[in-house]
């Protein structure tokens, strides 16, 4: 069972490495969206400093949405998904492996680059860690919830737009708590409560989302 889990992660990372442009597209999208905000709202440093966590979080949400469509699509198209459905490993485990690999490919780079983007917004340096940590805890939750949406919309026309409609409302708690962490840290309240809540959300989503996504995959591939 663990062999299959490791194998799926290894395979997805290998595929991403051999087609690295996909990874870069999501990352560049994230950077560009964040960079558009100062152009839209003006370069006032005080304003930028206030909106930085929110902007970075919303951009991370959108970037993660963008990557979601690919989570099961190619496996669905070439028949690998059928083999996963008929695999010896419980499907929830396979989905968990895929979600983890997906996060490493599309979520982790966002976490790593977020401090640089926050500096563009003149975000106080001492709180960069809280911001990055909130993203590190929050983006896996986005991938987990998103997996359910991606599985439900597999092979449907208008998949991308539909996927956003399904998934974005479910992202609300992560956005509120995630962006709240850095804001609370700046305002002197400390973001510990938010980070703990994000950790709780991660544990909750990690336990249940793969199974919901697995059920959705079985429904979608009938």
């Amino acid at each position: 069972m663990l062999a299959a889990f490791r194998c799926v992660i290894h395979r997805d990372l290998l595929l991403a490495a051999r087609r690295s442009s996909d990874v870069l597209t999501v990352l560049l999208f994230f950077v560009i969206v964040v960079s558009l905000f100062p152009l839209g709202v003006g370069p006032d440093p005080a304003l930028l400093r206030t909106i930085a966590p929110g902007v970075i979080w919303v951009a991370a949400l959108l970037a993660s949405m963008l990557a979601l469509q690919r989570m099961f699509a190619s496996d669905h198209a070439d028949g690998t998904l059928e083999q996963m459905l008929l695999g010896a490993t419980p499907l929830g485990m396979t989905v968990a492996a895929k979600v983890f690999a997906h996060w490493v490919i599309s979520g982790l780079p966002l976490v790593l680059i977020s401090p640089v983007l926050a500096l563009q917004f003149d975000f106080p340096q001492e709180f960069l860690g809280v911001l990055a940590l909130s993203l590190a805890l929050g983006t896996p939750v986005l991938s987990l919830i998103g997996a359910i949406g991606a599985a439900l919309t597999l092979g449907l026309r208008g998949g991308g737009a539909l996927l956003s409609l399904l998934v974005l409302p479910l992202y609300v708690p992560v956005l509120i708590i995630g962006a709240g962490a850095a804001e609370a840290a700046v305002s002197g309240l400390g973001g510990k409560a938010q980070l703990l809540l994000l950790g709780a959300l991660l544990a909750f989503a990690g336990a249940f989302a793969p199974w919901a996504a697995a059920a959705a995959l079985r429904i979608s591939s009938e």
């Binding site: 194998c7 070439d78 083999q83 490993t89 396979t94």
Partner: peptide
């Protein structure tokens, strides 16, 4: 569908298929 990934070699594809099957 063959369940073959374009970006993997024949041996890698077969390895993945066998591992998924347990």
């Amino acid at each position: 569908a063959n369940a073959i990934k374009d970006d993997l070699t024949a041996a890698e594809n077969l390895h993945v298929a066998c591992t998924l099957a347990g």
